[in-house]
Amino acid sequence: MTNFIEILIRGLMLGSVYALVGMGLTLVWGVVGIVNIAHGEFVMLGAYLAFWAFSLIHFNPLLSVALAIPIFFFAGMTIHKRITERLTKAPELSALILTFGMSILIWNLAQFFWTNTYRSVPYLTGSFPFFGLVFAKSKTVSFFLALGITAALFAFLKYSRLGKGIRATSQNSEVALVCGINTMRMRAVTFGMGIALAGAAGTIVSLQWVIFPQMGASYVSKAFAIVVLGGLGNIQGALAGGLIIGVLESLTTQYWSAKMAQIIPSMTILLILLLKPTGLFKK
């Protein structure tokens, strides 16, 4: 029984990071209308940011998160203004193919510059006991970091003027435009936020997992499963979806096999799209 609870909590910890990635994807998809296949690549870049900052100047990886958010935010805004904004009137599938190209470009450049060597950030090692359960320090810290960012995101969307504008744009961009909201700026800001979430997730991931150029693929497939589970553009749904995927992965790995756990995202996508295409949660 303690074992089961431990695995469950591990799943939630894992899921909290997945949720960050998923919330970024669903935010951009819902508000900007762009399906960003390259989303996982920004997770990878975030992880490398933490790695290089740590190994070159011994920058504290926990602070890398604070560093990553503004960097990725502005990078995302720039990418949107230069490239993806041109696609807002194009068919949805153009964006799909373009961001696909972006994904390939980014991870191959990463491979070119940083090679295929597996890297890691040996910062928080070891574990600590907690009421008879044992948790890795890195995973526990990651969990609280992810929760903190999630709480900040929710507060931002709920209380800030900008956040309200983003929610208005996501619900009806024409009405928002008429109401004097600069929807173009909203889209750029949202795109930046989505990328920042991916980047922040990446720095968190670097604490507990190996880093390599192709790592984005597994995160983007999980993020898609999360968006489909939570319903398109539904941030709370994405949080719940992330936790569900994390717990499922943790349970499957433990009680079945690691190989089968890899199939979870694709199975989730197929099942949800067939049975309940609007997602499990109400907005």
Partner: peptide, 23 residues
Amino acid sequence: IKGVYFAISMVALTEGTRELFGT
């Protein structure tokens, strides 16, 4: 399934089959 969701479901099918064939 229409539009982007169809595209994603086909990716999921491919990935799922790839993983399954290796189990």
